[in-house]
């Protein structure tokens, strides 16, 4: 049993649930415990990542780059060792900004096996 826990949050304000749900399902089938918190403000993502003692945070950023950057910055401040990856609509300039903060970015077109592989690597399973 991996017992590895991943927090999935939406930082964007749109109601698109398909993407994160499909990713969560793939992670579940790969043996992860995926904690869904839905739409959340940066400080709420931080609080949930602490209370749930997760090994990885996944953010669906829905194009709202500034909010995502705030969430990532807050997470890096509170839990510097906690890896973060993100997906959703990520324009190229946003991808560079997020990668500069140490976040792995999986824009539209990314393959599920690559995302699962990243989760395994980032949680230390591989």
């Amino acid at each position: 049993m991996s017992g590895k826990r991943i927090l999935m949050a939406k930082t964007g304000l749109d109601g698109h649930w398909r993407g994160p749900t499909i990713v969560a399902r793939a992670l579940r089938d790969a043996g992860f415990e995926v904690i869904m918190i839905g739409m959340a403000r940066p400080e709420e993502v931080v609080q949930a990542s602490i209370d749930e003692d997760v090994d990885l945070v996944g953010l669906n950023i829905g194009g709202h780059v500034d909010v995502a950057v705030r969430a990532v910055t807050a997470l890096n401040d509170e839990r510097p060792d906690l890896p973060i990856f993100c997906g959703g609509v990520v324009p190229p300039h946003a991808k560079r900004r997020l990668e500069a903060l140490g976040v792995e970015v999986y824009p539209p077109g990314s393959q599920l096996p690559d995302i699962v592989g990243a989760a395994r690597r980032l949680t230390g399973l591989d």
Partner: peptide, 14 residues
């Protein structure tokens, strides 16, 4: 938890 993969969707927080 899944009895097959041990994975889980923990959705109560939503």
């Amino acid at each position: 938890s899944s009895p097959l993969t041990r994975g889980a969707i923990l959705g109560d927080r939503v």
